[in-house]
Simulated assay, not measured.
Amino acid sequence: MIGILLALWVTHRRYAARGGDTDMVWDAAIVAIPAGIIGGRLYHVITDSDKYFCDTCNPAAALNITAGGLGIWGAVALGAVGVALLFRWKKVPLAPFADAVAPAVILGQAIGRLGNWFNQEIYGRPTDVPWALDIYYRVDANGEFAPLTGTSTGEVITSVHPTFLYELLWNLLIFGLLILIDRRFRIAPGGLFALYVAGYTLGRFWIELMRDDSATMILGQRVNTWVSAVVFLVSIAVFVWLQRRQRAVVRETE
């Protein structure tokens, strides 16, 4: 929630600076937030279907978002579709808003990664680097293993790469680069959002290679590794196409 509020504040300032109607920011939030939650849950359930649809599983658990499980890919995708349809219905250009929201979204994602620290989740392989994260054995009132809700016994199970911290820092780096690029270079409308997608997926690709928790595998690689690679290539292609189209328009008007 802190990430969402911070993202809204940044978007409001950036969209106003572009001359946009700031009421559209709140309208977009009303659409994007629920759409993002639904999309994130759908992506998680699809890519981790074995947790919900098996002989001993309870399919109704797929609807229980409070138990965890939201995929950022589905959240951004369905949220973006919802906002695009809103702007189309309102007959307002989408590209200026997309460029205004791009740095805000990745800033919100950075803040959201703090939740993985509280939940002791999405960490990497065991390591002995100085900044390794210690994972403690936790038990409930009955002495049963309870990694999320239990109390620590003081026993360290393992020390791992804090990959969620790596992603948090990477997202902050991309946030800064997007702000810098937006100020110093002439980017085609919509291009900054494409760069946000490319920047995020590039970082997610190498971070996914450091993780060894359970995940759906395709040809020996985690599904999110493949998604990162494909979306990165598509976003770069879109950025190049937008830049070329803008140069062609400029030449025609000269």
Rank of each mutant, 00 (worst) to 15 (best):
D140H: 06
A141C: 07
N142C: 00
G143L: 08
E144I: 02
F145D: 15
A146V: 08
P147V: 06
P147T: 07
L148G: 03
L148H: 02
L148K: 03
T149F: 13
T149D: 14
G150F: 05
T151W: 10
T151A: 14
T151Q: 15
S152K: 07
G154T: 00
E155Q: 13
E155H: 03
I157C: 05
T158D: 14
S159F: 00
V160H: 07
V160C: 14
H161A: 01
H161G: 01
P162K: 01
T163W: 00
T163M: 03
F164A: 08
L165C: 13
Y166D: 14
Y166E: 15
Y166N: 06
E167G: 04
E167D: 12
L168Q: 11
L169H: 00
W170E: 08
W170M: 01
W170T: 09
N171I: 04
N171P: 14
N171T: 11
L172Q: 05
I174M: 15
I174K: 10
F175N: 03
F175V: 07
F175C: 04
G176D: 10
G176H: 12
G176L: 14
G176T: 07
L177W: 05
L177M: 13
I179P: 04
I179S: 08
I179E: 15
I181N: 03
I181S: 05
D182K: 01
R183P: 10
R184D: 03
R184S: 07
R184G: 07
R184Q: 14
R184C: 03
F185S: 06
F185L: 09
F185K: 05
R186H: 15
R186E: 14
I187N: 06
I187A: 12
I187K: 08
G190E: 09
G191C: 09
G191E: 04
L192K: 11
L192P: 05
F193P: 00
F193K: 00
F193T: 09
L195H: 06
L195N: 04
Y196L: 15
Y196M: 15
A198M: 06
A198S: 14
G199S: 12
G199D: 07
